[in-house]
Every structure is written in C-alpha cells, then in structure tokens.
Amino acid sequence: MKVAVIGGTGLIGSQVVKILNAAGHEAVPHSLSTGVDLLTGQGLPQALEGADAVVNLTNSPTFDDVSLDFFRITMDNLLAAAERAGVGHAVVLSIVGADQVPGLDYYRAKVLQEDVLKAGPVPYSIVRATQFFEFMDAVLSWTDDGETVRLPSTPLQPMAAADVARAVADVTVDSPLGGTRDVAGPEVFPLDELGRITLAARGDKRTVVTDDSAGMFAAVPGDAIIAKSDVLIAPTHYRDWLASA
C-alpha cells in the first residue's frame, strides 16, 4: 500500500512512516520542508499521486481561534486533492473528548476538522488520542515562575507518542472506519499529580501548586478528556516511559 503522510516529519508522522515502511508498505513523508503546503494546496497533487491512503498529521501553528481557519482550509484542500487523485482512505489524528471542551478554541478546531472530513468525499477514519507524554514539558512551562509550577487537578489519561503512531498506522492500512477509534494511556492522573511525578523523576526541585484556574487544561470540565467505552488502551505506562526517556 502506498501512503502519503502529510506532516510526516513531525513527532507522530515520522514514527508512522517508519512503522508502515517496516511493515512493507510505501509510506512517503510530506511537509512544508518537502514542498507540500496544505494551506495553499501547493505540492498536494504530486504528493497524492498513486496513493492508496493519506494521513493528515499537520497541526495548527497556534492554539487560538486562528486554528479554526487552519483546519477548515487545510482539510478542504486535502480532501479536494485526494478526491481528484482517487485516494481511497483519509485518516486524521484528533483528541479524545475534543467535542466536550467548547471552551478551548483548539479543541473546537479539531472537532471542525473531524466534521469537514466526515462530510467530505473520501472514505475516512478518525483516530482520537489522549494527551502525549512528550507534551508534559510544555505543560509545565506554561505556568512556571522558576520555583513553582501551577497546575489544575484536571484528570488526564496520557499516552506515549510511539503508541499513538502505532494506532494511526494500524488504522491506516485497514479498511476505512467511517467513524472514530479512541486510544488512550493505561492510567489516569490528575494533572497536578502528573507534574509532581515528572519533576520528581527528573530531580527537578520546582514545586507543583494545585491551581484549578491555571493553564489551558483548566478549561476542561470534569473527566471530559478521559476515554470512555470502546477504547484501545495503549501498553506504555508513564513512569516506565519516564525511566527510559
């Protein structure tokens, strides 16, 4: 199977390409650096030529309301080009519970991306994943003052990027779902506890202060971004990942 991986040089995309190629498929990474621009459509016809499936792993450069236009425009361009090229399967990566967090522009933008895909002309699959282990450093930086980090107690069910990539690759080479597959980590943590675990494992002396108004995840109501039923549980545990990172 030939697969065009748009955003194929990033954290998830590069691993998807590696997994697919190791399994005997022809996965080709595409990104701005290779001349493919989803916002303008530049390079898309060439990238999709002969492709059986396309995986869209591109991301908005911002988390504000500009992300809404980004995902709408890029999905419109991708689906139009995929239909012209005869691509039989379009896959996107989204977020578990995104539709339950209307207070975050970025989550609303991801839901918009899903909706454009669902209404489009190409058979599709959506993989919804929980937050990545690899993003924890960024989360800690949002409210860091050098001595303390303020984090809300929002429940998270994080997973390793490698497990996300595996789930995306598996869905890509299968028949289109015409729906969504949720994947999540094996454990649920309050975000403030996750911060303390992370800092302790790294010998970081900063203190985590619980503040339910701090940072982006303060806008998440209850357990909105925790996986519910019919979820694929990834194998990697956070403490094991920290120990090997």
Rank of each mutant, 00 (worst) to 15 (best):
V5H: 03
G7H: 01
T9F: 04
G10K: 06
I12F: 04
G13Q: 01
V17Q: 03
K18N: 12
I19K: 01
L20E: 05
G24L: 11
H25R: 03
E26V: 07
H30I: 09
S33A: 15
V36A: 08
L39H: 10
L39Y: 06
T40Q: 09
Q42R: 15
G43D: 04
L44K: 00
V55S: 03
L57K: 04
T58Q: 09
S60V: 06
D69V: 06
D69G: 13
F70C: 03
R72I: 09
T74H: 01
L78R: 02
A80V: 14
E83P: 00
V87I: 12
G88Q: 12
H89T: 11
H89E: 11
A90K: 04
Q100L: 14
P102H: 07
G103L: 13
G103R: 09
Y106S: 05
R108I: 08
A109T: 04
K110I: 04
L112V: 14
Y124V: 13
Y124S: 05
Y124E: 08
V127T: 07
V127L: 14
V127P: 00
F132R: 07
M136D: 06
D137M: 10
T143D: 15
D145V: 13
P152A: 10
T154N: 12
L156Y: 03
M159G: 02
A160K: 00
A162D: 10
D163T: 00
R166S: 09
V168P: 00
T172I: 10
T172V: 14
D174H: 13
S175R: 15
D182L: 05
F189D: 05
F189A: 09
I197C: 09
T198V: 14
R202M: 14
R202G: 15
T210I: 14
G215Q: 06
F217D: 07
G222V: 11
D223C: 08
K228C: 08
S229R: 12
D230I: 12
D230H: 13
L232Y: 06
I233D: 02
P235G: 08
A243R: 14
